[in-house]
């Protein structure tokens, strides 16, 4: 996994743990967290695959653009590998 990543823009219905406000935003991997069961399967009582989970750091400028309160402040979120594209 490259250091820089972009969150996928897809908008499927159903239970996902990728916040809408981060879709399509670019960040850097802050740390790797290991593999965790996929919540998109757990949510429906299904046997779940283990997916790599990353902590991704975004700048507020990237997330909110001109609307950012302070563009150099940052936001960290945990994102599963299948929601990330390498840059």
């Amino acid at each position: 996994m490259a250091d820089r990543v972009r969150v996928k823009t897809m908008m499927p219905p159903g239970h996902v743990r990728t916040p809408t406000y981060l879709r399509g935003k670019e960040g850097v991997i802050e740390r790797t967290l290991g593999r965790f069961k996929n919540p998109e399967q757990l949510a429906y009582g299904l046997p779940a695959d283990e997916k790599p989970l990353y902590r991704v750091r975004f700048t507020m400028g990237e997330v909110w653009g001109d609307q950012a309160e302070c563009p150099t402040d940052t936001l960290d979120a945990e994102i599963y590998a299948h929601w990330l594209e390498r840059l």
């Binding site: 743990r17 916040p19 967290l33 965790f36 402040d73 940052t74 960290d76 979120a77 945990e78």
Partner: peptide, 9 residues
Amino acid sequence: IRVHDSTAD
């Protein structure tokens, strides 16, 4: 400021 959104595990 570093905001941490507890999105997963």
